[in-house]
Computed example of a mutant assay.
Amino acid sequence: MPHHLSLKNFLKDAGSALAKGPVALIFVEDDVEVGTTLRHHINCGFVSVVAFMPDAFELPEDIAEKVHRVTYSMMQDQALETAVNAVIAAAPDIWLYYCYNAEYLFYPFCETRSVGEMIAFNTEERRDTILTYVVDLYADNLEKFPNAVSLDHAHLDRSGYYALARNKPGTSWPEERQLDFYGGLRWRYEEHVPEASRKIDRVSLFKSAKGLALQGNHTFNEPEYNTYACEWHHNISAAVMSFRTAKALKRNPGSSFDIETFQWHNSAPFDWHSRQLLDLGLMEPGQWF
């Protein structure tokens, strides 16, 4: 696949990369698990996988021909929203997905069904989004894995998740079918996490549309895109299994030395299987069986 030297060049020369969805947009913040992240989403069945990453990071040779690489720095202000919104504007009316490196999409029955099959069913239900919950992963031994990342020793919290009503801006009136979800490491170590970053809900899978814009808090400017379900029944939801918070808590000097382990009585090994997440209530199949 071509190496695009900038976001502008990618949008100009994307061609087939943005001709048909679903398209995965992977934003690389560091060099941790870049290859496994890209391979995972290739295996999910995305039509195109686009890696936004600095030139300093290497793209594994075995997937270089399967990934559109875009030179891009995540150090700039609003880097994620800028890129996602530019893609939305350039390619309206296709399904998009976004995540960071060391994050892995899981959805009901993902072991035997492609992401395209899930989107096709969701479209039949007249839904243009699939809500995802960012579920924190962390290594069980921080002495052995000081950056808190280990796929073979990954753990998650099996409880401690909750939701609060999301009020309309500037009022005490709740938004219809919108909730703010919390839990995981951002809940357990909230004193080290800015309030604006504590939510774990993210509309990671969505259909692009003219005028649609991703906002800084992982919501969209279209209210219906931020709902967890339609008016008449529950819908599919998915999970983004993420080492991102664990990495940040161990990288930040203000929190790193306060944390000797992320393990607690509600930690459990992650099986890397959708059944575990369904059993824990961290995603649901809705009417998809």
Rank of each mutant, 00 (worst) to 15 (best):
A139M: 08
L164A: 09
V193F: 10
F181R: 14
L142T: 08
K168T: 15
D152S: 10
D157C: 03
F181G: 01
L164W: 08
F121S: 15
W187Y: 14
V149R: 00
Y98H: 13
R113T: 12
P146V: 10
Y98Q: 12
R126G: 03
T123G: 06
Y104L: 12
R188E: 13
I119H: 03
A139I: 13
I119F: 03
R188P: 11
R166C: 00
F145P: 08
P108W: 15
T129C: 11
V135N: 00
R158H: 01
W187K: 11
Y162T: 01
F145K: 01
Y162A: 02
E191R: 10
W187I: 14
N101R: 09
L137N: 05
G183T: 01
E117C: 04
F145Q: 13
F181N: 00
Y161G: 02
D152V: 13
Y161T: 05
L164H: 01
S159H: 01
D128S: 13
D180A: 05
S114D: 10
L142V: 12
C99Q: 06
H155S: 14
L131G: 04
D140R: 01
V193R: 09
E176S: 05
G170L: 10
V149Y: 01
K144E: 15
A120S: 04
E124I: 07
F181I: 09
Y133C: 03
E176Q: 11
E117N: 02
N147T: 10
H153E: 04
L131K: 00
G183M: 05
L185W: 00
D140Q: 01
D128A: 14
N141Q: 03
R113W: 07
E176T: 12
E190F: 09
G184V: 06
H153G: 08
I119M: 14
E175P: 13
S172I: 15
K168F: 13
R158T: 06
L179S: 00
F121Y: 14
N122K: 04
R166L: 01
S172P: 14
Y133L: 07
E175Q: 13
A148W: 12
M118L: 14
T123L: 06
E124F: 07
L156T: 00
P169Q: 06
Q178S: 15
P146E: 04
E124G: 13
W173F: 15
R158Y: 07
L137P: 08
A102E: 02
L137E: 01
P169K: 02
S114V: 07
F109W: 13
P174F: 03
R127M: 07
G170C: 12
F106H: 14
T112V: 07
R177W: 02
R126H: 09
Y138G: 06
L151P: 06
R188S: 07
T112H: 10
E191N: 01
K144G: 11
D140N: 02
N122V: 06
E176C: 11
Y107A: 10
A148P: 05
S150P: 05
Y100H: 14
L164Q: 06
W187N: 13
N167L: 12
N147H: 04
D180F: 07
C99F: 02
L131M: 14
A120G: 05
G170H: 11
R177S: 03
S172K: 15
R188K: 04
L156Y: 02
L105N: 11
N122L: 09
L105V: 15
Y182L: 11
V193W: 07
T132A: 10
Y100N: 12
E103R: 07
R113I: 13
E176K: 08
